[in-house]
Each structure stands twice: as C-alpha cells, then as structure tokens.
Write a protein that binds this DNA or RNA. Structure first.
Lengths: 200, 200
DNA sequence: AACGATACGGAACACTGTTCCGTTTGCCAA
DNA sequence: TTGGCAAACGGAACAGTGTTCCGTATCGTT
C-alpha cells in the first residue's frame, strides 16, 4: 500500500476522500474477519464490520482474490510499521519481539488463504512473497538486534531463519489438536538466554 | 462396492432393494458430476442426474465426505473390474491399457478431491489409499504383462511405477495451460517399443 | 450556492446446502 | 394373496451465501 496514488500519477484521477476512507476500513475489517472466520468470511460480515453496504464492498474488491491481495499488502505494511512502534513502546525488546511475532502470525493466516485463492496465478503470488520478505526481514532484524544488544536473547539466529521457522510452524494451523500459536510462543521463549543458568 | 452387505452380516439388517438401487445410481451420477463439475458439484445436480430427490441423497450420504469416500471406493472397484473386461474386448493389449489408464485418470479427480475434503481425517485417507494400491496395482500389472507379452511395449516398467507416474502427472490437472490428460497420453504412448526402429 | 460526477446502501435475485414431513413402496407374516 | 407397517422416497421450504442494480447521498469543483 503505502502510496497507492498519493497524487503525482495521472492515470488514476485520485479517488474521493470517502472512498479512500472506506477502502481502508474495509481492509481492517477483512483482516479481522479473516482471523476469526478464515479467508472465506462472508461478504456481508466484512461489510457490516466496516459499517458499509455490500455494494461498496464490491466496488472496491470485485473478486475475492482482489480483497485478499489487498489485505495481504496492507498487513505487510502494518506489520512492518508496527516493528519500530512496538520497540519504542514496550518494556523490553524481547516483549516487543513477542508481540510483533504475534502480529506476524495473524498475517500468515492471510498468506495461506492467499495461496489457495491464487492457485492459478503463481506469478502474482511469487511477487507478493518477495515483497513480503524484503519488507519484513529488516524489521524483524531490528527487533532481534535490539533484544540481542540488551542481552535478552541469543544472538545466533537470523531474522530470516526466525520468520521462516514461525512460518513453518503455522502450516496447518487451525487443524484440530495443533495450536500453532502456542508452538510459536515456545519458539520465541526459546530465544531467551537461559535466565536460571549463570553466565558463561 | 462389489459386496456391501450381500446378506451374511447381521449387524446391518439388509437394506431394501430400491434403497440399494438408488445408492448405486447416486454413486454413478456423482462420479459423472465430479468429472464435469468437480467434487463440489451441487447436491441438486447429482440427485437430478440420478433421478431422485435431494432427501434421498441426504439419506444415503449425510455429509459430502461420505459421498466422496463412497464414490472413491466405487471407482476403485469399477476400475479394477474394467481391467480384464477391456483386455478381452480390445483389439490389442496396448489399446486396453490406454483405455484403462483413461478410466484411472477420471478416478484421480475424485482422489484429489477426497484429499481436500478429508484434511482432518488423515487415517481414513491413508486406509483408502492403501486399499486403492492393493486393488489396482495387480490389475495394471495384468494389462502391462499382456502388452509386454504381445511385444507391444517395453517390459521394464512396473505397474506401481506407471500408476505413480500417471498420478503425478495429474497433480494440478484442470490448471489453465496444463492438460494432464494429454501428458498421460504421451506417457502411455511412450511405453510402446519404437516401431520404426529395427529389433536390437 | 449549484451542479455533475463519484460513491454509497441495501433490496432483490440467483444458487447452494439442509431439514422436515406427508406420501409411496418394498417386504414379511398371516 | 393380502394386510400392514417400517423403510425409503420426494420435494417444498428454510437458511446462508455471492452478486447485481439503481435510487439516493456525498464530495469536489465552478
């Protein structure tokens, strides 16, 4: 997202203010609905959450794939921006990291839904995947570095490894008897330097 | 199917004749519908094809998984029985093999649908998979042997390999720009001993 | 302030799964 | 052969979806 038409381009004549506002609201509503109901969340639910009519929904996102792609990008952006914010606001870097990873897991729900919705269009999917890595790895690295510098966690884990590991843990989430979120918590806890043992 | 309840078991009190007939008809109708519309074919369509009401449909197959599993077994059985029949009826063993493989591809559509429909219940899926191999490998071997004995095809390909190969070719069938059926044809054609070259 | 383009809202339609119950039919016992 | 009843049938009716359409409201400009 970031700057879809902030004014300079002339092919798109700039949308009306209320339209832009509604699009953003719908994106948030959809993201929330995806987490609770999956990517097949009913159109009416999403529209209702956003407080708009279904007509408005369809004007902004003619197909389900459009919606999912948009939410995906929106989520990547939100996730990326949340990194520094959390770091500044949290009591410790590790706490910030844990919270951030939590956002990341939400995001993965969308990502997996996207993969299904786009079985045909692999090119689009690959593009988005690359975008997501480019944008998120540095943010994760920043959090990781901060926590390492504070001596809270071991320092031999790369951002890419961590994101990858979390991503893999979330495969098949929502399956009965497998709580991906809990597994991720364990992983993140495992990053800590053992507090009970002495320094070595 | 073959002998679901031919009388001896006492736990199931034997179904009425019309019920058994309708079940078989529904199974055929569903198989046909799966090929043209996928495993999400509407209940009404299937019931209409079979010439029964939707109520009857639901009595026999309360859930979609029930239907798919039943069709799956039905298909395995039909496929297995078709082997010897085709061999007897066709002009050459290779022609019989080609036709049989064609049936097998139809069957794979169901199989893949089944995998999706049963994401949760892996045990059931594994059981069916094993059943399908046990039943179909010998039939395929019989066709293969006949064609090899007639000197029509090379003889260093096992039934398991062939079924596996065809199965893999059919992954992602129905994708745009990928005609799995055509690929399978090529594979089966490739089995032939090269007719233009001399013996060696 | 007036006006035209843009966007909104939600009723209405189409299609699906699912249930329910009055009616029909096969089967067995008399 | 016939009577009866449990089993099975059929399809109307309901509920939840996606999608379209157009009268109405709002924005941005003149």
């Amino acid at each position: 997202m970031a700057d879809i038409d902030s004014g300079s381009g002339r092919s798109a004549p700039r949308k009306r203010a209320d339209a832009r506002r509604n699009e953003a609201t719908l994106l948030d509503a959809a993201a929330a609905a995806f987490v609770t109901s999956g990517v097949d969340a009913p159109v009416r639910d999403i529209a209702a959450r956003a407080g708009v009519g279904v007509g408005t929904f369809y004007r902004h996102f003619p197909t389900r794939a459009d919606l999912i792609v948009a939410v995906y990008r929106h989520q990547v952006e939100a996730c990326a921006e949340a990194g520094p914010t959390l770091l500044a606001a949290s009591s410790t870097p590790h706490a910030a990291l844990a919270e951030w990873i939590n956002l990341f897991v939400d995001f993965l729900v969308t990502k997996h839904g996207l993969a299904e919705a786009l079985q045909s269009d692999n090119a689009t999917f690959e593009t988005l995947h690359a975008y997501f890595l480019d944008r998120l790895v540095p943010v994760c690295a920043q959090l990781l570095d901060a926590a390492a510098a504070a001596g809270e966690i071991r320092s031999d884990v790369t951002a890419f490894e961590l994101l990858r590991g979390v991503g893999n843990l979330c495969i098949g989430a929502c399956q009965p008897r497998y709580d991906a979120r809990r597994m991720v918590e364990l992983l993140v806890d495992g990053l800590r330097r053992d507090q009970s043992a002495g320094p070595r």
